[in-house]
Amino acid sequence: MDAVISKTGGAFFVDGLGGTGKTFLYRALLATVKGRGEIGVPTATSGIAATLLHQGRTSHSTFQLPLQPDNNSTCSFTKRSKTATLLKHSSIIIWDEAPMTHRYHFEAVDRSLKDLMENDLPFGGKIIVFGGDFRQVLPVVRNGTRAQMIDASFVKSPIWRHVSILHLRENMRTRDDSAFATRLLSIGNGDEPTVSDHTIKLPNHMGHHHTLNEDADKINDKVVEKFLGEGKTYYSIDSVPEDRRNLYQQEFLNSISASGLPPHALTLKPRVPLMLLRNIDPKNGLCNGTRLLCRGLKDHFIDAEILTGHSRGSRVFLPRIPLKSAEDIKLPFELVRKQFPVKVSFALTINKSQG
């Protein structure tokens, strides 16, 4: 707040384990700045973290970040745009879940803010508060070596030395389970005993496999079966580009399950929890990872209630939409699957369970 009041600029990193009150702190900072009649810009790396902040947007949307940045990328907003005006007049920028972001993105924002503010100070002299937990999910480098993954981290960026680090230490979320809190810290700080290749042994009751989409799907199917009521199965329409049409059988396309794509056969029952698989209307809380409760299963739409974020309690109608397989999944063609953009979410993979 000293920096905000004296307008001296400065970059900060708020380091805190899940549950130590990062979101609480961001909300307090934003409310205080707003109360002074000034502008705060709330952003976060993932859609879910963004929905926890009032009017929060993803960093990609806020800064118009390049999708495949390199070591001299810049953001694509122009000096005359709304984005530029907002950033120029903001008195604080908050960027949550920063450790999930490839450092090239921070470097692009640094370059663009210097250019916008016409000076050479870190981040153009703007006050910017990064936050998150380096013990959690880090940037994804597809099929990357350990060295590449480490190199992608914010701490390896030349800008990192300009960032002041602040710590939140008291875990408010695990106050009733001190054993879990202690284990979490010991793993995160690297104190847990390891076997050969740096792996750690988890207690037996915690299960011993990576959470893959496949594992989560199996668990979800089992639980849906146990639910009362009539199930309804929705089948997707799968297609590939014209010139490939006759090379692949429909059954083969239907059998493909890829991360980010809903299943070909989606079996649901009323009152089952769902997770949205893509941004549909982030302003109203419908983004990739939002959890919903299934209320009604109609032929052409799903009636659902939002369970998380600031739009909790809203009723929404979801249509079928065409979803494309991601570029980095090595399919020899682009698959378009027209389906409700949801999957059952009793079990989640690790990245989706953030926050």
Rank of each mutant, 00 (worst) to 15 (best):
T101D: 07
H102K: 04
H102E: 09
H102S: 04
R103W: 06
R103H: 12
Y104T: 03
Y104N: 12
F106G: 00
F106D: 03
F106S: 02
F106L: 15
E107T: 02
A108Q: 01
V109C: 04
D110L: 01
R111Y: 00
S112M: 03
S112W: 04
L113N: 03
L113Y: 07
D115M: 10
D115L: 11
M117V: 10
M117H: 05
E118V: 14
E118Q: 15
E118D: 15
E118R: 15
N119I: 05
D120T: 12
P122H: 04
F123P: 00
F123G: 02
F123A: 05
F123Y: 10
G124F: 02
G125P: 03
K126S: 10
I127M: 11
I128L: 14
I128P: 02
V129M: 11
V129L: 14
V129A: 12
F130S: 07
F130P: 04
F130Y: 12
G131Q: 07
G131L: 06
D133S: 11
D133F: 11
D133N: 14
F134C: 08
R135W: 12
R135F: 09
R135Y: 09
V137T: 15
V137S: 07
L138Y: 06
L138W: 09
P139T: 04
V140S: 09
V140A: 10
V140P: 05
V141K: 00
R142M: 08
R142G: 10
R142Y: 09
N143F: 05
N143L: 06
G144L: 06
G144E: 05
T145Y: 01
R146Q: 11
R146S: 06
R146W: 04
R146P: 05
A147K: 12
M149W: 00
M149Y: 00
M149E: 07
M149Q: 14
M149D: 01
I150F: 01
I150V: 15
I150Y: 01
D151A: 14
A152M: 03
A152G: 07
A152W: 01
S153H: 03
S153V: 10
S153M: 13
S153N: 12
V155E: 11
V155D: 08
V155M: 12
V155R: 10
K156A: 12
K156N: 10
K156L: 03
S157D: 02
P158N: 12
I159S: 05
I159G: 04
I159E: 04
W160E: 05
W160A: 04
R161I: 09
R161L: 08
R161W: 06
H162C: 12
H162E: 14
V163L: 06
V163E: 00
V163R: 00
V163H: 01
S164H: 12
I165K: 06
I165F: 08
L166A: 09
L166E: 12
L166M: 14
H167Y: 15
L168N: 11
E170C: 14
E170P: 08
N171W: 02
N171D: 11
N171R: 07
M172I: 15
M172L: 15
M172N: 13
M172V: 13
M172S: 10
M172Y: 14
R173W: 09
